[in-house]
Design a binder for these strands. Structure first.
Length: 301
DNA sequence: CATTACCTGCAA
DNA sequence: TTGCAGGTAATG
């Protein structure tokens, strides 16, 4: 389930191996609509001969800048994969598109569930994308103050708002649950009631879990891999995500984790450490254990 | 605001 | 056989 750290991991991988390469051919495979209805002929006409100038990320989108005014706008959604492989290699699993490059490698896009897209867009059109996305949570503009101001004027459940890409762009289900746990905030907490002190914890937690995810090259829960087919190492660093289903215990207080549905998504909380109402500190003092949690934090990105 | 559609593999 | 997984757009 690619979220910001996974998409960033893919971006870094693509940057290392595709910049300066020229597209020689586009080959459509299983899913004809992977480019949003663009035909194979049109895709080849417009893309062949174009050089890849850079690979950017905005929220969970990848933007491959080309040397005309074009860009490839890629979203992996749930199960999309991008791999760099030798051109002679047979199609990857669920391959929908092969972008043949001039150095004997292909950029291959596959997606079991066909939610993901590789769109050819005018680069100028990206401002519209940008305008409907909120803060980059690792960007300079995303401060605790900004987060606090945003949360207090929103009404709704904290988790829903953190998942809203128009507010903060790049968080998904995994990292929201992790950030809320680290900040000791309940996902159902009305966002407008969050205090500045709590917001500072949340802000810090968001940045820590995302940076840790990137440093570990993403969370491989089932199928995520980087463009070279390597799995992410972050799954073992998760504190709560995925443990609620299996009856796991809170890594901070040892009580059983709880599973609920928030905004239609499976959610794991510690009912003790993430009290639903109020600003009371969790019953067991988190300080000592909390230090060891923080010690997992990787070098800043 | 919440729910459904989009898809498919896999666990229950 | 059912339903869950979840990012986003569309719909109620």
């Amino acid at each position: 389930m690619p979220e910001l750290p996974e998409v960033e991991t893919v971006r870094i991988g693509l940057e290392q191996s595709t910049i300066g390469r020229v597209i020689t051919e586009i080959v459509f495979q299983q899913f004809a609509d992977v480019m949003g209805g663009l035909s194979s002929t049109s895709a080849n006409d417009r893309l062949s001969g174009q050089m890849i100038l850079g690979v950017r990320r905005r929220a969970k989108y990848l933007i491959v800048d080309l040397d005309s005014d074009d860009a490839l706008l890629i979203h992996l959604r749930m199960t999309g994969r991008l791999l760099v492989v030798p051109s002679a290699q047979p199609p990857i699993r669920f391959e929908h598109l092969a972008i043949v490059l001039d150095n004997g490698t292909d950029l291959r896009f596959g997606d079991q569930r066909k939610f993901g897209r590789v769109l050819l867009v005018d680069r100028g059109a990206l401002v519209h994308l940008d305008s409907r996305l909120g803060f980059e949570p690792l960007g300079r503009g995303f401060t605790a103050t900004v987060l606090h101001n945003g949360l207090r004027r929103r009404h709704g459940k904290l988790k829903n708002i953190l998942l809203d890409q128009r507010f903060v762009a790049g968080l998904g289900n995994i990292y929201v649950d992790e950030a809320l746990f680290r900040a000791r905030l309940h996902p159902l907490r009305p966002a407008s009631t969050i205090t500045l002190e709590e917001t500072r914890r949340l802000h810090r937690a968001i940045r820590i879990v995302l940076r840790q995810g990137i440093a570990n090259q993403g969370t491989t829960f089932s199928s995520f891999e980087n463009p070279y087919g390597e799995q992410g190492r972050n799954a073992s660093r998760l504190q709560v995500y995925g443990k609620g289903r299996t009856g796991g215990d809170c890594p901070r207080c040892g009580n059983p984790l709880e599973r609920l549905v928030v905004g239609g998504r499976g959610t794991t909380v510690c009912p003790t450490c993430q009290p639903r109402h109020g600003d009371h500190p969790p019953t067991p003092s988190p300080e000592i254990v909390g230090e060891s949690l923080n010690s997992q934090r990787p070098a800043s990105v």
